[in-house]
């Protein structure tokens, strides 16, 4: 495997996302204002119920992680399908680099754009809604955050091939992966409330444990609401990141082979 080639390919595919994110002027507005609207609604909702202050923090944390999740869905999972429709996919497939580099580039570019949004959300949370949090274990926190992203984007890479194999119908999976997933992963509330069985099942999605661990670390007052120990959660997340990436690779190879056999995947309008 040619390392320089693949590094350049990653950079090449990340580039349009970075540029695109900065270039389209309507971008910042929508992508920050939008999540802020529902975050604000949930914060006021908690206030109307006289919830403890840290619950408002849960909402901001959930909002930050959800922007990444949405990027995984719309910027990763459904991306190959879009690339096929525009005709880029066949050029990518015929080029010499590993197709994992394309996925990695998409992920890195996506993470860049999303982080700008996420930081804005945190700022608004802190300054407008006066959310306060504690950073007592910075390394653990960062590690959990990174591994959660790795696992989530790995999942997105996996879906990218799956959605393509599925065709137009798969598109609708993204809809399924929004509200119902917000609920079972405990977007704005401690997932422990759903009971151990549901929380365990929800842990298939890396978002669940990532959120739970960060909630415990950032808001020690609510430690009693933790589902598992953050260290344990980090361990599980590492395993799931590896599984996701390996599966992404397998599915990619499968998709490529299937595409060459049937001739359907590289063609517009199946």
């Amino acid at each position: 495997m040619n390392i320089m080639l693949n590094l350049r390919a990653v950079r090449g595919r990340a580039y349009p996302r970075v540029i695109g994110a900065l270039r389209e002027p309507s971008w910042m507005l929508w992508e920050v204002v939008l999540p802020m609207l529902s975050i604000a609604a949930f914060i006021y909702f908690y206030r109307s119920l006289n919830a403890p202050k840290e619950f408002e923090g849960f909402v901001v944390l959930g909002g930050v992680m959800t922007t990444y999740w949405l990027n995984v869905l719309w910027g990763m999972a459904s991306q190959f399908y879009w690339e096929k429709e525009t005709g880029n996919l066949q050029l990518y497939l015929a080029a010499p680099m590993s197709k994992m580099s394309i996925l990695a580039g998409m992920a890195l570019g996506g993470i860049f754009g999303t982080t700008v949004r996420a930081v804005s959300i945190i700022f608004i949370g802190v300054f407008v809604f006066e959310i306060s949090f504690v950073i007592s274990h910075p390394f653990l926190l960062v590690a959990i955050f990174m591994v959660t992203l790795l696992a989530m984007y790995g999942m997105g890479m996996m879906f990218a091939s799956l959605y393509l194999l599925w065709g137009r119908e798969a598109w609708n999976m993204n809809a399924l992966f929004q509200e119902p997933i917000y609920f079972i992963t405990g977007q704005n509330f401690p997932v422990k409330a759903l009971g151990p069985t549901v929380a365990m099942a929800a842990s298939v999605i890396p978002l669940t444990l990532g959120l739970d661990a960060m909630r415990q670390l950032l808001f020690p007052e609510a430690a009693g609401w933790g589902f598992l120990d953050p260290m344990l959660e980090l361990g599980i997340l590492c395993v799931s990141a590896v599984i996701m990436l390996v599966m992404a690779r397998q599915l990619l190879a499968f998709m490529e082979r299937k595409g060459r056999e049937t001739g359907k995947l590289t063609m517009r309008w199946q």
């Binding site: 350049r8 390919a9 090449g12 695109g20 010499p96 394309i102």
Partner: peptide
């Protein structure tokens, strides 16, 4: 063919594709 990304310039698109060939 309609390859590339509409948001990028001609030069940027070409540069991107060149990277896929290392």
């Amino acid at each position: 063919e309609h390859s590339g990304y509409g948001l990028l310039t001609v030069r940027e698109n070409l540069w991107m594709f060149s990277q896929f060939y290392g």
